[in-house]
Design a protein around this nucleic acid. Sequence first.
DNA 1: CGATAAATGCAACCAAATTGCAAATCCTTT
DNA 2: AAAGGATTTGCAATTTGGTTGCATTTATCG
Lengths: 147, 147
Amino acid sequence: MEHCDIRTTLENAGLSKTVQREAVLSTLIRADLPLCARDILVRIGRECRINKVTVYRVLDSFRTAGIVREIPTEHGETFYEMACRHNPTHPHFYCRICRSLACLPSAGIEQKWLQGIRPGDAAIESVVINFTGLCKSCQKRNRTVSV
Amino acid sequence: MEHCDIRTTLENAGLSKTVQREAVLSTLIRADLPLCARDILVRIGRECRINKVTVYRVLDSFRTAGIVREIPTEHGETFYEMACRHNPTHPHFYCRICRSLACLPSAGIEQKWLQGIRPGDAAIESVVINFTGLCKSCQKRNRTVSV
DNA sequence: CGATAAATGCAACCAAATTGCAAATCCTTT
DNA sequence: AAAGGATTTGCAATTTGGTTGCATTTATCG
Ligand SMILES: [Mn+2]
Ligand SMILES: [Mn+2]
Ligand SMILES: [Zn+2]
Ligand SMILES: [Zn+2]
């Protein structure tokens, strides 16, 4: 997969370049699936000194700038993924047991679906389509337990 | 709108009949929009003695029995609505300012959408389609403020 | 380099939801 | 109707994901 350049991304967004922002951004670019704040903190590890609060604030600035997309889940944790041209919007699958989030390969489908919707008077800013259920490994584990 | 019978609903679900369960169920049946645990607690008020924890547990038993649907929101509160035949599944709109949740009148559309999805190995149990943005009154309020 | 605005770290805080356990209630069987 | 066992509830404490206030540090620009 092709990737965005960290410096260019920050510059284009008008965000000042700090080690913490670079660490969060590079973690998200490297990731092959959406990450939550805790994931990011763990992945950065000792790479650079960074606080939990900073991760939240950095993610918020990225979201405001349109660099990342937010994917809220049933359980309450919010996941993040790159919102660049290399990663068009798509639905997600959330496992209610292991609380993992997976991207579903149906890019662009939201736009088609949106046309069937009458939002009334509301000003819609985003659509979240979240499938929930049991992932493959949790299905297996559950089957074994219940038999 | 037609309504379900409280006693029959509980009996069919195999749930014992307690004043607390009846209170929660009747509140949800009466409601004209999805409610969160706190809403339910407030609406029950002095009607019967009920604890916050009980509301959560009752809602959980209702969800397991398929009596209610869960609608998780971006902010972390979970809303609930009747899942009976009088109320087929539909998408929802969530206002990120006033945190209100509204039902969108597009019944049955999720089922159609599901057909376009390749879930891979996952066992899908539910689809949540959540529109987020600003409701009418929050648009107005925001406009006034920013001018 | 120095000034100033912006970003970060830390501790305290918050709201929603969950847990453990004792007391109360429900439901079946006498 | 009373008894007994299983289920449900209330209460206090805890967990979790996230936020706030404020002092310190860092980035950026002249
Ligand atoms: Mn994704
Ligand atoms: Mn609804
Ligand atoms: Zn899983
Ligand atoms: Zn609103």
